[in-house]
């Protein structure tokens, strides 16, 4: 910091504030929209509410249905995160650490998963889930979400695992640490930044996913929030203030999850065993 003077710091602050301002305006209006009436939402969508109408938010917060949907979403998203991180990091570790015949082919095979978004194969995917008897079952969402996250998770994780110093493994190997032991004792703890990042991506994708739960879930008690939001659309017509309030509340868990994972996005290498 010694070399950076006052003006660069000011410039940095200015750039960050401007970008942050542009980024935050739509988010803020989403949040504030929940305090407005329908008429005000139309005539002044971005202003501060003339009257802070708390009833929309409190209606949602006091509705047991809201909590059911949140719990269902949380179960699905957290399971998808855990399953993806576990299976993808194991596979990525094999690709990064072990050279074996067919490794490249298997990696290319996994890469195919990046070429195909959900929407493209939703009908065949539905048929598959139905044939496995997983309709109206949270696993019917969790497993496909995990599978569709697999490709990018493996690619990202492997790329980061490869950046870990090779000497580390050699030293551990001499000390009698096998491949599996090394994975759990060194690779995973040293990779918290990327694990946290991938985990966040998977969480958000799963959290906001709409199309898959729509075709898999019919039982209302299993609905995740993107489906449940329909119960809050108002008695008739779309009451956007309700939707905005609902959405604002559903961002919170994802933000909390993000804040939590942020703690792990710290320099693993400086803290870890490289220096010690």
């Amino acid at each position: 910091m010694t070399r950076s003077g006052f003006f660069p710091a000011l410039l940095r602050a200015a750039v960050l504030s401007i970008v942050a301002g542009i980024v935050i305006l739509p988010l803020l209006s989403t949040f504030l929209g929940g305090f407005k009436t329908m008429g005000e939402l139309r005539s002044s969508p971005f202003g501060i509410p003339a009257i802070w109408d708390l009833s929309t938010y409190s209606d949602i917060l006091f509705s047991p249905l809201f909590w059911t949907y949140m719990r269902n979403s949380l179960v699905v998203s957290l399971s998808a995160v855990v399953l993806t991180l576990l299976s993808a990091s194991m596979a990525a570790y094999v690709f990064a650490q072990i050279r074996f015949f067919g490794s490249r082919y298997i990696q290319s095979y996994l890469l195919l998963g990046l070429m195909f978004p959900f929407a493209t194969a939703i009908v065949p995917l539905f048929i598959q889930i139905r044939d496995l008897n997983l309709l109206d079952n949270p696993l019917g969402i969790i497993l496909p979400q995990t599978a569709f996250s697999m490709a990018f998770a493996v690619v990202l994780l492997r790329s980061f695992f490869q950046q870990l110093p090779k000497e580390l493994f050699e030293a551990a190997y001499v000390d009698g640490c096998g491949y599996i032991g090394f994975f759990f004792r060194f690779t995973l703890p040293l990779s918290t930044p990327i694990l946290a990042t991938v985990g966040t991506f998977v969480f958000v994708q799963s959290w906001n996913n709409y199309l898959l739960p729509l075709v898999v879930l019919n039982d209302r008690s299993l609905y995740t929030w993107p489906l449940g939001i329909m119960q809050f659309r108002g008695e008739f017509l779309i009451e956007w203030n309700k939707i905005l309030a609902f959405v604002s509340l559903t961002i919170l868990p994802a933000l909390i999850f993000f804040t939590f994972t942020q703690k792990y996005i710290v320099a693993g290498l400086t803290r870890g065993s490289v220096k010690g």
């Binding site: 009908v123 139905r130 109206d136």
Partner: peptide, 22 residues
């Protein structure tokens, strides 16, 4: 069960061909 128009239309083809059809 209530559902908005678009979701209703996208869901129906798959739903009707599953055992959980209404």
């Amino acid at each position: 069960d209530y559902m908005d128009d678009t979701s209703f239309k996208s869901k129906l083809p798959t739903l009707l061909q599953s055992s959980s059809r209404p």
